[in-house]
Simulated assay, not measured.
Amino acid sequence: MSRFFENSLSRRRFLASSAALIGFPAVAQDTSDSSTIEMEPAITQKVRRNTSAFRTLDWQPYFSNLNRGAILVDIDSRALHFWDESGQYFLYPSSVPMSEELTRRGRTKVVRKVVGPDWRPTPSMLERNPDWPAYVGPGPDNPLGTHALYLSWTYYRIHGTHDTRKIGRRSSNGCIGLYNEHISQLFEMTEVGTQVLLI
């Protein structure tokens, strides 16, 4: 795990602690363990400054059921909401596309899950950034971080990032980015077929 977190955290302790780390009352609603862990103050301040309007949401206005769980990405508030099949709720700060032109909204689903994804920029990314490499393998230089959820839309992913400055900002080329620690947790809770809605 990253230098910001202890290695021995369970999923429940990590998610319960996230609210205290980021400074919001309900980053994760699994609060059976109220222990907290330390995060570097600079990171905490960046998230507070960059996250525009964190708010909790109910799943019913957006999904007819929670079969296989549900992910709702709120582009405006730069947050990813997840409900598992039992209705347990988790809220993560995210990066979102840097412009409306790169933003896609609507319904999709998780079609593939990859630990240690590789990355190839899209043709339009290479057109805008001709000096970018055509391929980056898994590792610390990979823009997709440690885990990726591939969506049914071509080129769109929910993935981690090694560049934590991007979280809470309009900073992506179309994908939704999470802290590596958060995407690893979401990765474990989702499955192929998990429904996704971007609004």
Rank of each mutant, 00 (worst) to 15 (best):
S2K: 06
R3T: 14
F5S: 14
A16G: 13
S18A: 08
S18P: 03
A19V: 00
L21N: 06
I22F: 15
G23E: 14
F24L: 05
F24S: 04
Q29C: 06
D30K: 06
D30E: 11
T31Q: 14
S32E: 05
S34G: 13
I37E: 06
E38W: 09
M39V: 14
E40Q: 14
P41Q: 07
A42Y: 11
A42N: 09
I43F: 11
Q45M: 15
K46W: 12
N50F: 12
N50V: 09
R55K: 15
D58K: 13
P61N: 11
N65E: 13
N67A: 09
A70S: 02
A70T: 00
A70H: 02
D74Q: 14
I75S: 02
S77C: 07
R78L: 01
A79F: 05
L80H: 00
H81A: 02
F82E: 00
S86F: 09
G87N: 02
Q88M: 06
Y89I: 03
F90Y: 15
F90P: 01
L91E: 01
P93F: 03
S94P: 04
S94R: 00
S94D: 05
S95P: 10
V96H: 01
V96S: 10
P97D: 04
M98H: 09
M98V: 06
S99L: 11
L102S: 03
L102N: 04
T103F: 02
R104Y: 07
R105L: 08
R107K: 07
V111L: 08
R112V: 12
K113V: 09
V115S: 11
G116E: 10
R120P: 01
P121I: 06
T122N: 03
T122M: 10
P123N: 05
E127K: 11
P130F: 08
D131I: 03
D131Y: 05
W132V: 13
W132D: 12
P138C: 13
D141V: 13
D141Y: 13
D141K: 15
N142E: 14
N142D: 10
N142S: 15
P143E: 02
L144R: 02
G145L: 08
G145W: 10
T146E: 10
T146F: 12
H147D: 12
H147S: 13
H147V: 05
H147I: 04
S152M: 08
Y155P: 01
Y155C: 03
Y156W: 00
R157G: 05
H159C: 07
H159S: 08
G160H: 12
R165F: 14
K166Y: 09
I167S: 07
I167Q: 08
S171Q: 08
C175W: 03
G177H: 15
E181W: 07
S184V: 08
Q185M: 10
Q185P: 01
F187T: 13
F187E: 11
F187D: 08
E188R: 02
M189R: 03
T190P: 00
T190M: 00
V192R: 07
G193V: 09
G193R: 09
T194H: 02
I199D: 05
